[in-house]
Amino acid sequence: MADATAKAEPLLTPTIDDDGAPFWHYAARGELRVQACAAPGCAELRFPPRPCCPHCQSFDSEWRRMSGRGRIWSYVVPHPPLLPAYAAQAPYNAIVVELADAPRIRLVGNLVAAPDAPLNSVDPARLRIGAKVQAVFAEVAGMTVPRWVLERP
Rank of each mutant, 00 (worst) to 15 (best):
C53E: 11
Y26L: 12
Q134W: 02
G41V: 03
P80V: 12
G68I: 07
A38R: 09
P91M: 15
N93E: 12
G41F: 00
W24T: 10
L32K: 00
Y92I: 00
R50D: 13
R106M: 15
A117G: 03
A135D: 03
A131N: 08
I72S: 09
S121Y: 03
R104G: 08
A102L: 13
A113L: 14
R29A: 05
A28L: 11
Y75T: 00
V96Q: 07
A28F: 04
Y75C: 09
D123Q: 04
F137Q: 07
Q35F: 01
L107G: 00
I129V: 10
F59H: 13
D60M: 15
R33M: 12
R50S: 11
M143Y: 04
A100P: 05
F137L: 14
C37R: 04
R50F: 13
R33V: 14
L82A: 03
V77A: 13
A85V: 12
L45D: 05
P14F: 07
R106D: 12
C37A: 08
A135N: 06
W24M: 10
M143T: 05
K132Y: 02
A102K: 02
P118W: 06
A27Y: 04
P91I: 09
R106V: 12
D18S: 10
S67A: 10
N93C: 12
A85P: 07
A102H: 04
C52G: 07
F59Y: 08
A100N: 02
L82K: 05
P81A: 07
R128K: 14
V76K: 01
L83I: 00
E31S: 14
A141V: 03
V122S: 09
P146C: 06
I16F: 01
P124I: 02
A43R: 11
P124V: 03
P78I: 14
P54E: 04
C56D: 15
R46V: 15
V76Y: 00
M66D: 11
Y92E: 05
A88Q: 11
G20I: 04
G20A: 05
P54H: 00
E31Q: 14
R128C: 15
E139Q: 10
I105D: 01
A87P: 15
S58K: 12
L111Q: 06
P115R: 09
F137A: 03
R128P: 10
A27V: 03
R64W: 03
C53F: 06
A39N: 09
H55F: 08
V97F: 02
A39Y: 02
P81K: 00
L119I: 08
F59P: 15
V136S: 05
P81H: 03
